[in-house]
Each structure stands twice: as C-alpha cells, then as structure tokens.
C-alpha cells in the first residue's frame, strides 16, 4: 500500500523520518529504513536538514524506492531556484518517487555553510503551486510539459505551537489551496494544545499527522524550549526524563548497567502517539538519530 492509499484508507497512519549521511556511507540510513519496513506508511527523507551539507534527499529516496520502501521526498527552497526545484520534482517522478513534502527550509546561517548564498526564490507555498502546476501539465512559466507527473502527492507542514498561531493558520489554508494533500506538524508534546489547534483548523479537509520528536534527555527538552521555534516540552515530561537520568547515574555509581533514560523516552513517545492519534489522521515520528528505537516505540504504543 502506498502512503497515499494509507491516508485514503482513513486508518490512522504512521510516518517516520530518516536522515541522509554526511558522506557516502549509506549503510546506517538504509538499515534504519529497513527496521521500519512494513511498520510505517511512509519514510520522510530530510533535505539538507538544519542547513547542513550531506547526501541529497532525492538520492536517498531513490535507493529506498528501489528497495520497495515508500519514500516521502522533503524539498526545501533554500538551495535551489525555481528552475532547479521544478526540475528536481520531474526527476524525482521519473525515478519512481511520488510523495513530496514542500518546506521553506532553515536559513543558511543556521547550518554548516553560513557563508553561502540563501536562495529562497520560491517558498513552501509557491513550491506547492509550482508542483501543482506540473501535475496539471505546465511549468511556472506556463509552458506545456511532455508528460505531466500526474500522481505526485504533495504535502506541507504546520507549527501548531507557534505564537501567535494565526499566521500559521492563514498559511496552512494557503498551502492546501496551493496543492497540499497531507500535512505533517512540528513536534507536539501536549495533546490538549494539539486538540485545540485541530478544532481551529477543522475546516482543513486534508489529513494531518501530528509530529513527535523523541526526547533523548531533559537537557534536550530544555534546549528545544529555549531555542527551537514552535516547540514546547511541558515541565512534567522534563521531570520524567530528568528522574530517569538520575536513576541511571545512581545505578552506574553502584557499578550496574542501566538505561532508564532510553526506556522513559520510549514510554513518553508511545504515550504521545496514543494521546495525539485520536485527534488527527496519525503521527509522524522524528527520531533525530534514534531511529533504532522506533520499533520499540511502536511496540510500546501497541502498533
């Protein structure tokens, strides 16, 4: 079943993110993807995440597709102008890729080549417009295509925890009008806020998958609260992670092996899956390097 069919089946859908490496050793990312075979409906492949140079999303998606996995190509507007972006959409299509998540992208100054030229010729909304145009058989200049990529399946993101959230809601509507057929959200850690957000966007009639980032430690949670836009980890979760870290430290002091931190992280993620799923079409997991723990998270969530 394709990702699109999974969403259309109305069953709660799970997707997970994998990240291409910096360098040409693909074993790790392919192993992580393999662990998720048959367990998720789609695998998002990040596009130079956090503006750091690495193997492209397109190349990685192509390898996944060749292995019979279901990739979701992430495309950001930071590094290519409208010619290159449209060309890559066509290229992805001829390589067998059908799902595309359109994003604006982090600014180059946040990444590992801060001196480079930020492009942003298009943005998330206009990239969706461009892709929708290709689906309908014409490029951004109105030229006709010899064979349109008719069944590209376009998606976008939203940040439910943005403050103020109104501009995000206007933009979400614009994204859907521009061609988005599915939505994945920024990381959510409280079901109540998410439920309220879902009420406010009840008139958006495309499936929304709630984003979940695996909490690796109390420190990571505090860091995200201080530095990552639109992410808020409640104190109760920080305390849980911090208590687990404490237990690990005292166990190690007694010379015992312990990993309460990972266990707690998995429990929290599983709980979030159970709490968020009833409000939307499913969840999107972002393990940020902990992909090998995702099967345990899914098991703990009863999936």
């Amino acid at each position: 079943m394709t990702f699109r069919e999974a969403l259309e089946s109305q069953d709660s859908t799970i997707t997970c993110e994998v990240a291409p490496p910096k360098g040409v050793n693909m074993e790790h990312v392919l192993e992580e993807a393999e662990l998720l075979r048959g367990r998720v409906a789609g695998l998002n492949v990040t596009d130079l995440q956090a503006a750091s140079m690495r193997v492209s999303s397109l190349a990685t998606c192509t390898l996944l597709e060749q292995k019979g996995l279901e990739p979701i190509l992430q495309m950001v507007c930071r590094d290519r102008n409208r010619l290159a972006l449209q060309s890559e959409l066509l290229s992805a299509y001829v390589l067998g890729i059908r799902n595309v998540l359109c994003l604006t992208g982090d600014h180059v100054v946040l990444g590992d080549h801060p001196e480079s030229k930020p492009v942003f010729d298009l943005d998330s909304v206009s990239l969706l417009q461009a892709a929708q145009g290709l689906i309908e058989g014409r490029d951004l200049s109105g030229n006709e295509l010899a064979g349109p990529p008719e069944d590209l399946f376009l998606g976008a993101i939203v940040t439910p925890r943005a403050d103020p959230v109104e501009p995000q809601i206007y933009k979400l509507h614009n994204k859907v009008r521009a061609g988005a057929r599915f939505i994945q959200t920024q990381a959510m850690y409280d079901a109540d806020t998410f439920a309220k957000f879902m009420e406010r966007v009840a008139d958006v009639d495309v499936p929304i998958l709630a984003g979940i980032v695996l909490l690796k430690s109390a420190g990571m949670a505090r860091y995200m609260n201080a530095n990552v836009a639109g992410v808020f980890v409640p104190d109760s979760l920080i305390r849980e992670m911090s208590a687990a870290g404490e237990k690990d430290r005292s166990a190690r002091a007694e010379g015992k092996k312990a990993d309460f931190r990972t266990k707690t992280s998995i429990e929290i993620a599983a709980r979030l899956i159970r709490d968020l799923r009833p409000h939307c079409a499913g969840v999107h997991l972002m393990p940020l390097g902990w992909g090998h723990h995702v099967p345990a998270v899914l098991e703990a969530a009863g999936l």
């Binding site: 982090d106 998330s124 943005a162 403050d163 836009a229």
Partner: peptide
C-alpha cells in the same frame, strides 16, 4: 531574512 512573499516560515521564536 528569507525575503519570503507568502508569510512567515517556521523559524520565528518570540
């Protein structure tokens, strides 16, 4: 900073 024409990106904090 990104000269966006269609609204804010996901980046602004406070």
């Amino acid at each position: 900073s990104k000269s966006l024409l269609y609204g804010s990106c996901g980046g602004p904090k406070d």
